[in-house]
Protein backbone atom coordinates (compact mmCIF):
# COMPACT_ATOMS: atom_id res chain seq x y z
CA UNK A 1 0.00 0.00 0.00
CA UNK A 2 1.13 3.53 -0.74
CA UNK A 3 2.77 5.12 2.31
CA UNK A 4 0.48 8.18 2.53
CA UNK A 5 -2.63 6.07 2.08
CA UNK A 6 -1.45 3.73 4.84
CA UNK A 7 -0.79 6.67 7.18
CA UNK A 8 -4.14 8.29 6.44
CA UNK A 9 -6.01 5.03 7.08
CA UNK A 10 -3.90 4.52 10.20
CA UNK A 11 -4.76 7.97 11.58
CA UNK A 12 -8.44 7.55 10.72
CA UNK A 13 -8.68 4.15 12.45
CA UNK A 14 -6.66 5.24 15.49
CA UNK A 15 -8.89 8.32 15.83
CA UNK A 16 -12.03 6.23 15.43
CA UNK A 17 -10.86 3.72 18.04
CA UNK A 18 -9.99 6.53 20.46
CA UNK A 19 -13.25 8.43 19.99
CA UNK A 20 -15.16 5.16 20.35
CA UNK A 21 -13.76 4.63 23.86
CA UNK A 22 -14.58 8.19 24.87
CA UNK A 23 -18.06 8.36 23.31
CA UNK A 24 -19.31 4.82 23.99
CA UNK A 25 -20.75 5.57 27.44
CA UNK A 26 -22.65 8.59 26.13
CA UNK A 27 -24.08 6.62 23.22
CA UNK A 28 -24.84 3.14 24.54
CA UNK A 29 -23.77 2.35 28.04
CA UNK A 30 -25.83 4.72 30.15
CA UNK A 31 -28.01 1.90 31.45
CA UNK A 32 -25.16 -0.56 32.02
CA UNK A 33 -22.76 1.52 34.07
CA UNK A 34 -23.08 -0.88 37.03
CA UNK A 35 -22.78 -4.06 34.98
CA UNK A 36 -20.38 -6.48 36.77
CA UNK A 37 -18.62 -7.43 33.52
CA UNK A 38 -17.76 -3.77 32.89
CA UNK A 39 -16.52 -3.45 36.46
CA UNK A 40 -14.45 -6.62 36.11
CA UNK A 41 -12.84 -5.50 32.84
CA UNK A 42 -12.35 -1.96 34.13
CA UNK A 43 -10.38 -3.34 37.02
CA UNK A 44 -8.28 -6.09 35.46
CA UNK A 45 -7.90 -5.20 31.79
CA UNK A 46 -5.52 -2.25 32.28
CA UNK A 47 -2.80 -4.17 34.21
CA UNK A 48 -2.97 -7.07 31.73
CA UNK A 49 -2.80 -4.72 28.76
CA UNK A 50 0.15 -2.76 30.14
CA UNK A 51 2.16 -5.96 30.57
CA UNK A 52 1.37 -7.06 26.99
CA UNK A 53 2.42 -3.63 25.71
CA UNK A 54 5.68 -3.83 27.67
CA UNK A 55 6.43 -7.23 26.12
CA UNK A 56 5.50 -5.92 22.66
CA UNK A 57 7.65 -2.80 22.97
CA UNK A 58 10.61 -4.61 24.55
CA UNK A 59 10.64 -7.16 21.71
CA UNK A 60 11.60 -4.31 19.36
CA UNK A 61 14.72 -3.51 21.41
CA UNK A 62 18.14 -4.87 20.42
CA UNK A 63 18.86 -8.13 22.24
CA UNK A 64 21.76 -9.70 20.32
CA UNK A 65 25.40 -9.74 21.52
CA UNK A 66 24.67 -9.04 25.17
CA UNK A 67 22.72 -5.91 24.20
CA UNK A 68 19.84 -7.45 26.13
CA UNK A 69 21.73 -6.67 29.33
CA UNK A 70 21.60 -2.95 28.46
CA UNK A 71 17.98 -3.08 27.22
CA UNK A 72 16.59 -4.95 30.22
CA UNK A 73 18.97 -3.34 32.70
CA UNK A 74 17.84 0.21 31.88
CA UNK A 75 14.19 -0.81 32.03
CA UNK A 76 14.68 -2.43 35.44
CA UNK A 77 16.41 0.72 36.70
CA UNK A 78 13.46 2.68 35.29
CA UNK A 79 10.91 0.44 37.02
CA UNK A 80 12.69 0.70 40.38
CA UNK A 81 12.98 4.50 40.05
CA UNK A 82 9.28 4.76 39.21
CA UNK A 83 8.34 2.49 42.12
CA UNK A 84 10.29 4.62 44.59
CA UNK A 85 9.80 8.13 43.17
CA UNK A 86 6.35 7.97 41.48
CA UNK A 87 7.80 10.59 39.12
CA UNK A 88 7.24 9.40 35.53
CA UNK A 89 9.37 12.07 33.84
CA UNK A 90 12.30 11.40 36.17
CA UNK A 91 12.14 7.62 35.71
CA UNK A 92 11.81 7.79 31.92
CA UNK A 93 14.66 10.31 31.69
CA UNK A 94 16.95 8.22 33.91
CA UNK A 95 16.22 4.86 32.26
CA UNK A 96 16.39 6.25 28.71
CA UNK A 97 19.61 8.14 29.38
CA UNK A 98 21.34 5.03 30.69
CA UNK A 99 20.19 3.09 27.63
CA UNK A 100 21.20 5.78 25.15
CA UNK A 101 24.65 6.17 26.73
CA UNK A 102 25.42 2.44 26.72
CA UNK A 103 23.83 1.13 23.53
Amino acid sequence: MDQSLYLISFIALAALATVATRALPFLFLSRHSQHPLLEYLGRYLPPVLMVLLVVYAVSDLPMANQQWVISLGSLILLAVTQWLSKNALLSIALGSLLYMLLI
Binding site: M50, V51, V54, Q82, I92, S96, Y99
Partner: peptide, 11 residues
Protein backbone atom coordinates in the same frame (compact mmCIF):
# COMPACT_ATOMS: atom_id res chain seq x y z
CA UNK B 1 13.77 3.01 24.34
CA UNK B 2 11.07 5.67 24.89
CA UNK B 3 8.13 3.42 24.00
CA UNK B 4 9.01 0.50 26.31
CA UNK B 5 9.98 3.06 28.96
CA UNK B 6 6.53 4.64 28.85
CA UNK B 7 4.76 1.30 29.16
CA UNK B 8 7.01 0.13 32.00
CA UNK B 9 6.03 3.27 33.94
CA UNK B 10 2.33 2.59 33.27
CA UNK B 11 2.72 -1.07 34.25
Amino acid sequence: IVLPALFVVLA
